[in-house]
Design a binder for these strands. Structure first.
Lengths: 137, 137
DNA sequence: CCTTGAGTCTGTAGTTGCTACAGACCGTAG
DNA sequence: CTACGGTCTGTAGCAACTACAGACTCAAGG
């Protein structure tokens, strides 16, 4: 398998290596239709090319940014349909941004409670514990 | 079922109502050993009392604060064992606090990227989209 | 007394987003 | 030619629930 130049016709492990994606996850994305079914060798091995790398990177990047599979599927539909408008994508992104901000707010609330509770702890070797009391109250 | 006074001998739906917990989740917590198997009536109906309410509230509160089931199981072991020390609980709480803060940091990074990307959008009805390009890059 | 409707019981399947097998192939280096 | 790795498939597992189906029980109304 001479691919000493730039990535053409690689197989699964190599695609995984280049994208940092788990081996099995690639198959999962194919099964769920986010990645296209790749062509196969005569013996059934998957063969990938640069387009697959790009699409997988797109998916992984979107996952990193916290988009759900369903949301990414939506983004990919826009891309694939070729009918995407900036307005549509912007709206989805901003919706997602709002979700992320809500999540941050939630976690900050939690942080505050945890910090306040932990601060009450003597840290000593005694059975009374304000954390447990706070949880039980 | 006279329980006009304070909660004694309630059944599942009532426990759910008082704690805000989903009906099925209670059964799940029992199955996974976080809640004790409650006594039953002759015909097999579960019967709960105030101790069950407290314990369920403890679990739900800890879940709200983002503790995993496994972590809560740990906290409950400390409580149940009676051997808990404030030092142990404090340490777990602070570990969890660190996790929460890491999560906040992650989300803030994501927020920044999303906000910057969305800001580039014209919001117009054209097919070029900086968000998709950012994801694809 | 009997029916009706609501509550409860059990086990099991679905959810999301993967991850990890088992057992059967394939392909290449020694 | 054989050994060792990679690949193939389908399926089961993870967290943490949630939602059934089908059987049972219980209290109230007629």
């Amino acid at each position: 398998m001479a691919d000493h130049v730039s990535g053409k016709r690689l197989q699964r492990a190599e695609l995984a290596r280049r994208t940092g994606c788990n081996l099995e996850t690639i198959r999962y994305y194919e099964k769920t239709g986010m990645m296209p079914d790749p062509p196969r060798t005569a013996s059934g091995y998957r063969v990938y090319d640069d387009a697959h790398i790009s699409r997988l990177r797109f998916i992984l990047r979107a996952r990193e940014l916290g988009f759900s599979i369903e949301q990414i599927r939506g983004l990919l539909d826009l891309v694939d349909g070729g009918t995407q408008t900036c307005a549509e994508v912007k709206e989805r992104t901003e919706q997602h941004l709002a979700d992320v901000r809500a999540k941050i707010a939630d976690l900050k609330r939690i942080e505050k409670v945890l910090a306040a509770t932990a601060a009450q702890c003597s840290g000593e070797d005694i059975p009374e514990c304000p954390v447990l009391e706070a949880l039980a109250s």
